[in-house]
């Protein structure tokens, strides 16, 4: 128990000791607090920051994992542009991002608007969330069956509707499309974030707009969308990199990057370069490009969201 300052004459007589005791209690609270943060900060340092710095350093060296790294300057970055596998995988990744990210964002927004009911819709929300949290390997295996060109349910359904039945994972173009399709059903995270963002818009704002004669579409376009824009931008930045990472398991399990390397995206490339070819220098150079991309996204998200906030403040005035 902390003695209450000024509670009794004896504590009045020893103001110094009481102060010291209060300070000690305060400091021990701070020490405990620091202790609580320690595992997170230390773990992040050891498992994220240090490996990232090592990558940065090794990208300028030749390192096969056996002998000590030797300095080669920008040689790895020159090799990046000359290695067909690297170029092709960057091209695949770009195609994936351009096709999947906008569609995923639209899907999240659509689900958030449609499944946002203060009453009911709870089970539909759980169902829409489920494909995102299923174990990746199990989900990929299920698609191995769905995408089977001859007996898979997707092609049987397309056939019944009189539509063409593609070869999916057996052909380069449709293999990429299949990976995009799988990613489109896993928008649970974005959908939950936008659902929460949407519910944070006070109901009074809509009532006021309704009084002014705004319809539903105007309500969405002029009220909801601007208010949840910072969340959309944060999601966009996250999806531009995280959806790429998430291609690893599907492309690994369904076709191991094939056919003809068409589903070799960045994660599989980095895996191959580091753990199959043991070319840690080249792998690090690829990762440095990824770091530049991440920094650009962080910087872009920060500026866009700050800009929106500033505009909101000036609008309010």
């Amino acid at each position: 128990m902390v003695p209450e300052v000024g509670a009794s004459p004896s504590s009045m007589a020893q103001p110094r000791g009481v102060k010291r005791r209060a300070a000690w209690v305060r400091d021990s609270y701070r020490r405990q607090n620091a202790l609580f943060l320690a595992p997170y900060l230390l773990g992040t340092l050891v498992l994220v920051v240090v490996p990232a710095l090592m990558t940065l350093a090794v990208s300028f060296t030749d390192y096969q994992g056996i002998q000590a790294p030797t300095w080669v300057g920008l040689d790895n970055f020159r090799r990046l542009t000359e290695t067909p596998l690297v170029r092709f995988s960057l091209y695949n990744t770009l195609i994936f991002v351009v096709a999947a990210v906008p569609l995923r964002l639209l899907g999240s927004l659509g689900l958030a608007l449609l499944l946002d009911g203060r009453r009911g819709g709870g089970l539909a929300r759980a169902a829409a969330f489920l494909p995102t949290v299923l174990p990746e390997t199990a989900y990929a295996l299920v698609w191995l069956w769905i995408l089977n060109p001859v007996s898979g349910p997707l092609n049987l359904m397309l056939g019944a509707l009189g539509l063409p039945a593609p070869a999916w994972m057996a052909e380069a173009g449709t293999a990429r499309l299949a990976i995009v399709l799988m990613a489109l059903m896993q928008v649970g995270e974005g959908f939950v974030v936008l659902l929460v963002a949407r519910q944070m818009v006070p109901a009074g704002v809509y009532e006021a707009a309704e009084v002014d004669g705004a319809n539903r579409w105007q309500g969405f376009w002029h009220i909801t969308l601007p208010l949840i824009m910072p969340w959309i931008l944060l999601l966009l930045s996250r999806d531009l990199i995280v959806s790429v990472q998430n291609t690893f398991t599907p492309s690994f399990v369904l076709a191991y990057g094939g056919p003809y390397y068409s589903t070799t995206f960045l994660p599989l490339l980095i895996f191959e370069l580091s753990f199959d070819f043991m070319d840690w220098g080249l792998a690090s150079a690829v990762l440095v490009i990824v770091y530049a991309w991440i920094l650009l996204l962080i910087w872009g998200a920060r500026n866009l969201i700050e800009g929106l906030r500033r505009r909101e403040v000036s609008d309010a005035r």
Binding site: L37, T44, V46, L47, V48, V50, P51, A52, M54, T55, V58, S237, R238, I241, V242, V244, Q245, F248, L266, P267, I270, F271, S274, F275, W280, A283, S284, L287, V290, Y291, I294, L297, I298, A301
Partner: peptide
């Protein structure tokens, strides 16, 4: 400072540190 750093970390995918987490 720490919250901003944590939000920034959300944008760092696991693959960014795959290679040298192995060494650690």
């Amino acid at each position: 400072r720490l919250v901003t750093a944590s939000v920034a970390l959300l944008l760092v995918p696991g693959l960014a540190v795959w290679t040298f987490r192995f060494h650690i």
